Structures are given as C-alpha cells and as structure tokens.
Simulated scan of single mutants.
Amino acid sequence: MEAFFVSTLAVTVGEIGDKTQLLALLLAARFKRPVPIIAGILVATVLNHALAGMLGEWIRSMLDPAALRWILGISFLLIAGWTLIPDKMEEDEKVRGRYGVFLITCVAFFIAEMGDKTQLATVALAAKFPDLLQVVMGSTIGMMIANVPAVILGKVASPNFPFKLVRYISAAIFALLGVAALLTMG
C-alpha cells in the first residue's frame, strides 16, 4: 500500500497549479459540462500513467540497484526544483474543435501530460516501487483529487487558491522522496 499512498500524495500535490490543472479550469470554463470533462481526465490519465508506469517498471528491470538509486534520487530532486516553477497554459494548448467534450478532454489531457512532471514522477515512482498497479492507481487518484475540484469549481476559486504554498509543499515532498531514494535504496 506504500506505493499507492506515496503515488497518490506525490501526484496530488504535484498537480496543484500544474498546466493540466489549468487545462481542467479552461475546459470547465469553456464547456460547463463537468461529467464528460471528468471522465475524459480519468481515461487520459489512466492511459498516460499506465504507459509511464510500464516505462518505470522497465527502467527498474534494466538497472542495477545502485544506479537506480542515484537516478531516482536525482530525478525526484529535479522534479522538486521543477515544481517550484509555476506552470502557465500556453496559447497553442488552448482547446479548440468541434468534437465532443469527452474526446477533446481525453486528447488534450493525454497530450498535455506527456513529459509533464506528474508523468515523470509516475515513471520514477514505478521504478522505485515494484507494484505497478498501485503506482498507476495512486497517480491516477492523485490526478483526480487535484483536477476534479478544478473542474467543479471552475475559475471561481482559482484566484484565491494558495498555489505558491502548495508548490513549495509539493517541492518538499519530491525532495524528501529524492533524499529517501538516495539513502534507502540498494
């Protein structure tokens, strides 16, 4: 269960203020249809994080424990630093099109999550923990915990949310994961 809880916590906190959370706000403000948006986020996240988890599992199988320890430790520390940088929605990522809200959300979230810090964290967590299902379930639940309120509340609550504080807390969690990986693995 450790893999599940660590993955859930790391991705939940890491997602606050992330570009995909901003995308959730944008979709909610534009389409005002929370159910297909939430369903689209879920499907895109399961697919994206399952692929990320399989990559992490493959990395774990290919590296000796000492190398894995260093790579994971440094990766988590880099993600901690990256977390301190606020995400902004880029103009070309704004959602356009004539497709259904569910499909637009699936595609937009899947693409936006590619190479994102929470996807890379999922790769690292799957490399650290041997239970792929728990990592993917935890990271998916973490994405949903962070994004469902953004969809439901839309832009109403976002100006008052302490994104900066949450970024610092998230960076601290990733830094602790990095230090723990360096000190305990292998």
Rank of each mutant, 00 (worst) to 15 (best):
V6C: 00
T8M: 11
V13Y: 05
G14H: 00
G14F: 03
I16N: 06
D18N: 10
K19V: 08
K19S: 08
Q21H: 04
Q21W: 01
Q21C: 00
L22E: 04
L22H: 01
L23Y: 05
L25K: 02
L25Q: 04
L25N: 04
L27I: 13
A29L: 13
R30D: 15
P36W: 12
I37G: 03
A39N: 09
G40D: 08
I41Q: 04
V43H: 06
A44P: 08
A44D: 08
A44S: 13
T45D: 12
L47A: 15
H49L: 12
A52F: 01
G53H: 08
L55F: 10
E57M: 05
W58Q: 05
I59Y: 04
S61A: 13
S61T: 06
M62Q: 11
L63K: 06
L63T: 06
D64H: 07
R69S: 09
L72W: 07
L72Q: 10
G73I: 13
I74N: 07
I74S: 10
S75E: 06
S75Q: 10
L77S: 14
L77C: 13
L77Y: 08
L78G: 09
I79V: 15
A80S: 12
A80H: 02
W82Y: 15
T83F: 08
E93D: 14
V95F: 13
V95R: 10
R96I: 13
